[in-house]
């Protein structure tokens, strides 16, 4: 395998693993974020505080906990996920769910309260009014997804501890950068880092550009 094709393979794996992780995090985090953002309930500040705090979770600590769970002797060892891309997906998804929840909640809370009243006074019922608030939050929700993806694709600890950086199986951009730099292949490490940055930028810019389209589609 040539160096170029290896870089392409690692890049595609990174995109798949972190894209999948961000997708799962969106599936779990978006409803939680919407719920916390829209509903008033007892213990809400505590829930928000916990998710906010978990945004700063050290990746190696999460990697270690999941390693213990997924190891042969661990309670989830029977799943045989350790050292597979799926372990990294699970780990990264858990890592970024708090980002998804926190940004979504914050976005919804910051929508002008009059939007809900506007929908109600024009004849919408409660669920219609909530839908109107969500439509206004779409920019923030897309930001939450792109931030989640960016965090996932740029993290190292979870990928290294759960994936093991196995060539052709679990090697992704961040683990490859760490390995090449440790081996003294600094130039290759820099090249991979540039690829990582370009991928992140392209994905984020694309999402921002898609926002207008999504908004238009939501109003159909």
């Amino acid at each position: 395998m040539t160096l170029a094709s290896e870089i392409v393979e690692i890049t595609l794996r990174s995109l798949f693993v972190s894209g999948f992780a961000a997708f799962i995090a969106t599936l779990i985090g978006l409803p939680i974020g919407v719920l916390v953002g829209l509903r008033k309930f007892r213990g809400r500040p505590l829930v928000k505080g916990v998710f906010n705090g978990m945004m700063a979770m050290p990746t190696v600590a999460l990697g270690l906990i999941l390693y213990l769970l997924f190891s042969q002797t661990g309670p989830l060892g029977f799943l045989q996920l350790l050292y597979s891309p799926y372990a990294i997906i699970v780990g990264q998804a858990i890592l970024v769910v708090p980002i998804m929840v926190s940004i979504t909640t914050e976005t919804i809370e910051n929508v002008d309260p009059s939007i809900r009243e506007l929908a109600l006074t024009l004849g919408a019922d409660e669920s219609g009014a909530r839908a109107a608030v969500l439509r206004e939050s779409i920019g923030g929700i897309l930001l939450a997804s792109s931030a989640s993806f960016s965090r996932a694709i740029s993290e190292l600890g979870v990928a290294l501890m759960l994936g093991g950086n196995i060539v052709g199986l679990t090697r992704i951009l961040t683990t490859a950068i760490a390995l090449e730099t440790a081996r003294g292949e600094v130039a290759l490490g820099i090249g991979l880092a540039v690829v990582l940055l370009v991928v992140m930028l392209v994905i984020n810019v694309s999402l921002r550009l898609a926002e207008k389209r999504v908004r238009w589609w939501l109003w159909q």
Partner: peptide, 8 residues
């Protein structure tokens, strides 16, 4: 409303 509020 007093302050014009619109859907985006």
């Amino acid at each position: 409303f007093q302050n014009p509020v619109h859907f985006g």
